[in-house]
């Protein structure tokens, strides 16, 4: 049976048709669904920063891309988001599992929780933190619309609570 994910459906409903991804346990089901669905081109990455380039190429040739990663990978993307998206004004949806907040059970993710939002502020990338599953779809729709109005990246940070149905 094909994997299903409400978050994947939210992406498709917002017009996302290209997804570059790297796994996190919270988004495992989402990545399986993206990989199995012909509504998007799915590119499994070796490292998140290359995905910023891959998604930029996809957007420049007519796709609406999302980079689906954990926030540790978001930190790997800072240079590319600045020197590529920031230099040219190239949009990108950053759909990020938000590890290290007070909901976090693993100690090694905690430093990520401290720095993620300040880093996005410094990169001048607007973001929404979603804490419930039903907030993901409108946040993704808003972020995707902002990509069109601004030609700039936008981020949706998904906490554990918002992904409760998807967490393994």
């Amino acid at each position: 049976m094909m994997a299903t994910s409400p978050v994947a459906e939210a992406l498709f409903a917002a017009g996302i048709d290209f997804a570059a991804t790297l796994p996190d346990s919270w988004i495992h089901q989402l990545l399986l669904a993206l990989g199995a669905d012909p509504r998007c081109i799915h590119v499994p990455l070796a490292r998140e920063e290359e995905g910023v380039g891959v998604c930029a190429g996809a957007w420049l040739t007519g796709r609406v891309p999302a980079l689906v990663i954990q926030n540790s990978g978001l930190l790997n993307c800072c240079n590319a988001l600045t020197t590529l998206n920031g230099l040219y004004d190239i949009p990108l949806l950053l759909l990020v599992s938000y590890r290290g907040t007070m909901e976090e059970e693993s100690f090694f993710h905690v430093p990520l929780g401290r720095v993620t939002e300040p880093v996005l502020d410094s990169l001048e990338i607007p973001y929404r933190v979603v804490t419930r599953a039903d907030e993901i779809s409108p946040a993704v729709a808003n972020a995707t619309h902002f990509m069109r109005t601004s030609q700039r990246p936008a981020a949706v940070l998904m906490t554990r609570g918002s992904l409760a149905q998807e967490v393994q």
Binding site: V43, E50, V54, G57, L60, T61, P65
Partner: peptide, 10 residues
Amino acid sequence: SIAFGMALSW
């Protein structure tokens, strides 16, 4: 990586 994203998309 950019060229690869383009080639897949077109």
